[in-house]
Amino acid sequence: MTDTAENKGRRDFIVVASNTMMAVGAAAVAYPLINQMNPAADTLALASIEVNVGALAEGQAITVKWRGKPVFIRHRTAEEIAAANDTSVDDLRDPETDADRVQKPEMLVIQGICTHLGCVPLGQKVGEIKGDFNGWFCPCHGSHYDTSGRIRKGPAPTNLEVPPYAFISDNVIKIG
């Protein structure tokens, strides 16, 4: 075949088309190879859990495991709610009112992971140290949280996180 300009153009087109398809094919193959590392269906099936708090008496707390991490649910007493509300927001390191952190004032739902370096704070079980503010105390580096789970003293930068949750009935909380 003679190398006329016209032939050259067609030749380039078919070669470019072939190389483009190779690139598209490689990208299509890459997708499953990458996506397989995302959470699998059985992991996602447990991404949200339902917790029945009907049996949780005032003053008691339970810890549930959600996405591999602890979630603290505390049925707060009137004094604890009052203590949380009486705190002046301006004095806080991470200013947040108690009302911003709860859906029902008596039921506090927070993630039990210290915002400093990820330890699990004490204060859930009867007799555990609750820290200077009667909430939670992280033994790793001495962070004190109040009855709303807000940081009050110690190295942690922010309040204990509130996970996404909703009351799907009076007593059942859906976390996640």
Binding site: Y31, P32, N35, Q36, M37, N38, A40, A41, D42, T43
Partner: peptide, 24 residues
Amino acid sequence: MHYTPHVDHAFESVERIMRDVNQG
């Protein structure tokens, strides 16, 4: 990455790859 080389879990982990792992 998804397989478990143990007699009690090997078969099941392969089935998990087939059923639950994304495009496994």
